[in-house]
Amino acid sequence: MRAPIETDRLLLRPLTSADEPALAAILGDAETMLWYPHPLTRDEVGEWIERQLGRYENGSGLLGLVEKRTGELIGDCGAVWQDVEGVAELEIGYHVKRQLWNRGFATEAAKATIDDAFRRIGAGTVISMIRPGNGASRRVAEKNGLTLDRVVFWHDYQHCVYRLSKKRNEDE
């Protein structure tokens, strides 16, 4: 089972089926999911959680993002293996409840996830796949030291590939 990750304000812990209602409110929100093909239905959120449970077996997967102060599930964040142009890449992904945007939660969670990927998983590099128009997610990546590597056509859309290597991260 995946170990939780803690920051000052957040607990990143494995998702469970009990998280489905709260996560459905986030991943089913049209504005939150603007850069995805569509907001997720309740059934799709259940499948999303099941995929993460399977990923936990190899040490990856999106974790539930819980605000410590309130105990509320406010999103997800984690490292997920993706095939990008035939290469396995460890992607840092995140979703935060729209009502809590611009409070630094995504940046804080992604930073902790990056550190965990380098330390626990032993990754040499991490990436974030972000649609070009998604300025908020691009800023999260940049705040955490990722830089634009290239633009690829991935899952039917153009995506900016932001990258951070462990060596660079340790030098900062």
Rank of each mutant, 00 (worst) to 15 (best):
L73K: 09
G124K: 10
E142F: 07
P132A: 07
G133V: 08
N134Y: 01
D83L: 14
V45G: 00
I92L: 11
L148M: 11
E20L: 13
R69Y: 02
G28N: 10
D116F: 14
S17P: 15
D43E: 15
E47K: 07
M33S: 11
L53W: 01
I130K: 00
N144E: 08
R119T: 15
A106R: 00
V84Q: 05
C77R: 05
R51A: 11
E44S: 03
G133I: 07
W101C: 03
D156G: 05
L90I: 12
V45S: 05
L148T: 06
K97Q: 12
H159N: 09
R163C: 07
R120C: 13
T70Q: 09
G122S: 02
D19F: 03
M1T: 13
A110S: 14
G59L: 12
P4W: 00
A123I: 04
G133N: 02
L11I: 10
W35C: 06
T107C: 14
I26R: 00
V84D: 08
L73S: 05
E172Y: 10
I26Q: 00
V84W: 06
A3E: 14
K111L: 15
R13S: 09
L15S: 05
A79K: 00
A106E: 05
D19E: 10
D156W: 04
I92E: 01
E170D: 15
G124R: 12
G135A: 11
C77D: 03
N144S: 10
A136H: 09
N58W: 00
V152M: 02
V84Y: 03
C160W: 05
A25N: 07
S17K: 13
S60E: 05
V84A: 11
A22C: 13
T16V: 12
A112T: 10
E89I: 00
L73A: 05
V96P: 00
Q82V: 03
Y162W: 10
V66A: 13
P21Q: 12
G122F: 04
E67F: 07
V161K: 00
T41K: 01
Y157Q: 14
E31H: 13
L12V: 11
R98P: 15
G104Q: 07
Y56P: 08
V140L: 03
C77M: 12
S17T: 13
D29M: 08
R139K: 13
T41W: 04
E91M: 10
G46S: 12
V126L: 10
V84K: 05
F118G: 02
Q99W: 04
A79E: 08
D83C: 09
C77N: 07
P4A: 08
S128W: 02
R13W: 04
R131S: 02
G124Q: 13
A79S: 11
K111M: 14
A109V: 11
R131N: 06
G71H: 11
